[in-house]
Structures are given as structure tokens and as C-alpha cells.
Amino acid sequence: MASIVRFCNSFLLTWILIVTVTRILAEAGAGVFRPKPWALAHATFYGDETASATMGMSVWYGNLFMDGYGTDTVALSSTLFNNGFACGTCYQIKCYQSSACHKDAMFTTVTATNLCPPNWAEPSDNGGWCNPPRVHFDMSKPAFMKIADWKAGIVPVAYRRVPCQRNGGLRFVFQGNGYWLLAYAMNVGGGGDIGSMWVKGSGTGWISMSHNWGASYQAFATLGGQALSFKLTLYTTRQTVIAWNVAPSSWCVGLTYSSNVNFR
């Protein structure tokens, strides 16, 4: 009997070790987002000191102040925008080798919330700053003013993509109707870029949502009257989190629902 007990205990410890190692390897495979190397580009700005021109736009975050992004935002040229999958990514940007640079400013950190569309009527070195394949940052004016004199208009910059540091959990804004749910994922930490999203009603299995645009995903399903959970996978790192019971069965479109989980 004692030998059987020892065998069972040994088997149990081995099984626990295998499960632990497997989980660690899985997390390593879908790793935590790390800062990327510095690279060179240019930056301009749009709007005024209030950053009111940054509200809404192509990512459909809505009011960036209410959504927690404030004025530290940037529109990406299409080379970086990645058909909207780059929405929510974060960058450190510093002015580089220009007389307009603020000497005491190391860098500023911004979130990508908009697309800077190409201007094919202008050459890429004189007005068409966001024309592909050019890498360009069109910053909100308050963000630009943190690194350079706004009168310069355009400055060379060094940039790198960094993890997004967020307070609190993922947030979801609902739009749609009884047969179509459109959800905007906001306050996304880690890599910041949602690559896949699923929704689960309290009476359904997981339903794959299709990418609508920017940070929004949609499901053509009847989900009214059900509590909703969401599963999200980041585009870059392939990390996945599940936000259980984000919205109660009485959820309504037009409201924001918060979870207690986020990416790191």
C-alpha cells in the first residue's frame, strides 16, 4: 500500500510539473509585449490646443477624453495603420536633430487612435506626409507641443512602439440592434492591438466576431437578454484574455461596460 501511495504522490507531482511547464511555455509563446527598437520618421500635428479635432475619426473611439485617452494621441500613416489593426497601439516619440526640438523633452508617449490618410495630390516630401510607404505620425497638437515648437509644422523624430500602460480593465462600448452587436474594445493594455474577438451570451457558446474597423468588432446574432462575456486575442503577441460577464442581461447599446481584466 505504501508503495502505491508513493507512486500516486510521485505521479501527481509529475503531472503538476507538466501542467505548470506547459502553461509557462504557452505564456512565453504568446509573450508580454516588449518595446521595439528606435527608428526614424517625421511628425506633424493637426487640430488646435484643445485637441477637439481628434474626437471620433476613423478608429471610432468616440470622445477620447471620456474614453481615457486624453490628448496624448496620434494618427498613423497607412504604412503603420495596418488596416485598423494598429488602433490602440502605443508609441514613444521624441524630436530628433531639429532646432525646433524642446531640449528638456526626452519623449512623449501617445496612443494610435486615428488614420492619417494619404494626400495623393501632394508629393510625400512636401505635403503628402502620410503617403505610403512613408512612416509618419500626425500628432494631436498638445502631444506635438510636448516635444517641439508647433511653429515648425513638421520635425524629424525617433520613435518606438512600447507597451500600453492602462489603469483598470478592458472597456466595451456597445452599438447595434437586436440582431447585430458592434463592440468597441478600449483601454487595452500590453500590445494594445486587438487581432481577434469573440462574444459569449449566457445562453450561447463562443461566437466569433468579425473585424468592422479600427478597434470595433461585430457579431450578427441575437444576444439581447443575455449576460455577455468577451474573449480577445492581441494581434502582435497573440495573448488571449477572457472578460467574463462584462455586461448584465439588461445591457443596452450606447453604454460602456468595464471588466476587471487586461493585457500586460
Rank of each mutant, 00 (worst) to 15 (best):
C8T: 13
A183M: 07
N83T: 11
F263I: 01
F45P: 05
Y217R: 09
V155W: 01
G62P: 10
Y96G: 02
T237Q: 05
L232T: 11
K36T: 14
G56P: 08
T54I: 03
A112R: 06
F45H: 14
A215Q: 12
T222K: 14
M186F: 04
A221I: 01
A41W: 09
G224M: 14
T109V: 06
S229K: 04
G190N: 00
L76R: 06
Y96C: 04
L12Y: 12
Q92K: 06
G176S: 11
R171P: 02
S10W: 14
N187Y: 01
T113G: 04
T109H: 02
N83P: 06
C130E: 12
L228A: 04
Y91K: 03
I154S: 04
A221N: 11
A219D: 07
H42K: 05
V199E: 05
C87H: 05
A247Q: 00
I24M: 12
M55R: 12
I147E: 03
N131L: 10
G205P: 08
R166E: 10
A53W: 10
G195V: 08
G189F: 02
S210F: 15
G195N: 06
V135R: 09
G192D: 00
V173M: 10
V199D: 04
R264F: 09
G128H: 08
W244H: 04
E27A: 15
N212K: 15
N262V: 06
G29E: 10
T256P: 01
A39P: 02
D48G: 14
G153E: 08
T22V: 08
L232R: 01
H42G: 05
Y184P: 00
I24T: 13
R23V: 15
G31Y: 00
A30H: 15
G205T: 08
Q165P: 07
L13V: 15
P118Y: 10
T109P: 01
P163C: 00
A215H: 14
C101F: 02
A185E: 05
L80A: 11
G176P: 12
T237W: 00
V135D: 07
R264N: 14
T14G: 15
